[in-house]
């Protein structure tokens, strides 16, 4: 990607996005006919509409689309010394993606097991942490949304939010202090005589999972709370009146109603977990190789941005595919999540 091409892209893309907007609104008008709501342009006026579209378009393009495009481009190029960039050797290649699967060309092993293992461990552990989050949050969310009073809900909200004023790295280290072999919990257990050897919580990855579960708890919490809050209490009572035991009410009435919220919470938590960096770096046991630190190392230890970009993309794509599959499995549309 060279500067002149880059510049023209920055200028052209907002115009393209604007044109796309207009095209969509025309299409919508044609499809719905007289039923169409007042159009975006008519409602806001040409000047403000243009400003909004251009501003949002620029934002989207510069902050989201361009960097990603640049990273995709980067991931498809070989790592070269600066004086050879743009030279005859600077051609598109899948070398960086190949490396993820098979490792270095000089390696004797058939597969790049270290990285592949870390990759699947990351996905699997993220799924587990997401499930753990759901199990932790659902009862509290239901209690807050359906059972308790408004005043109590406010207190719960405060209690939930304030711990997150502490930054992520500090929270991760707090877990270390809590769970380390000379940590608070081990000390107490030793003093009480419940154990005679400190338990290696960090080595057993208890710290990692606890830290990850805690890090994105709120995402799950608020998604569930919002979804359950909109459930008509009479539905729960009607189910109860018809003889349903409590667990069946949750299974047949509350969860189906909250499905979009569950999906959006789970998607968020899963994505954030798979991409988490601080908790795995600080709390990961010695045998745990999380995928994100590997990506980080490509960039800053190996100084191989091309490979780092490729790794990041593998993770991103895998997560998107996985999430879409799960959504399909549970019959939730992408549109429902956004509600």
């Amino acid at each position: 990607m060279h500067s002149s091409a880059g510049h023209s892209l920055i200028l052209a893309l907002p115009l393209l996005v604007t044109a796309g907007f207009i095209l969509f609104s025309l299409l919508e008008r044609r499809r719905l006919g007289a039923l169409a709501p007042v159009s975006f342009w008519r409602r806001n006026g040409i000047a403000i509409s243009t400003y909004l579209v251009v501003a949002v378009g620029l934002w989207t393009v510069i902050m989201i689309v361009l960097p990603q495009l640049y990273m995709i481009d980067l991931s498809l190029r070989p790592k070269l010394p600066p004086n050879q960039v743009g030279g005859p050797k600077d051609v598109y290649t899948l070398e960086n993606y190949r490396y993820f699967l098979y490792g270095s060309t000089t390696s004797t092993a058939a597969w790049n097991t270290t990285h592949i293992k870390a990759f699947f461990l990351t996905i699997g552990a993220s799924v587990l942490v997401t499930l753990l989050n759901f199990v932790l949050c659902y009862p509290l969310a239901f209690y807050m949304a359906q059972v308790t009073t408004r005043a109590r809900v406010r207190i719960f909200m405060l209690l939930l939010i304030t711990p997150y004023w502490v930054n992520e790295v500090l929270r991760a280290f707090a877990f270390r202090v809590l769970l380390g072999s000379q940590g608070v919990i081990n000390t107490i257990l030793l003093k009480l005589g419940l154990i005679d050897q400190p338990i290696d919580f960090l080595g057993l990855d208890v710290g990692l999972y606890a830290g990850l579960a805690y890090a994105y708890l709120l995402m799950m919490m608020f998604s569930l709370y919002n979804a359950i809050e909109s459930l008509d209490r009479n539905q729960v009572e009607a189910a109860r009146d018809l003889g349903a035991p409590w667990w069946y009410i949750h299974w047949s009435v509350v969860m189906p109603h909250a499905k979009p919220g569950i999906a959006s919470g789970a998607t968020l938590v899963f994505m954030l977990n798979a991409g988490a960096l601080a908790a795995p770096l600080v709390l990961g046991g010695p045998r745990t190789l999380w995928f994100t630190p590997i990506v980080y190392d490509r960039f800053y230890q190996a100084f191989n941005w091309q490979q780092g970009a490729a790794y990041a993309f593998i993770l991103l794509l895998a997560c998107i595919v996985f999430v879409l599959l799960v959504l399909r499995l549970f019959r939730v549309g992408l549109g429902e999540i956004a509600r």
Partner: peptide
Amino acid sequence: IFQNLALF
């Protein structure tokens, strides 16, 4: 039977 029926 609820006032708002509360059908599922």
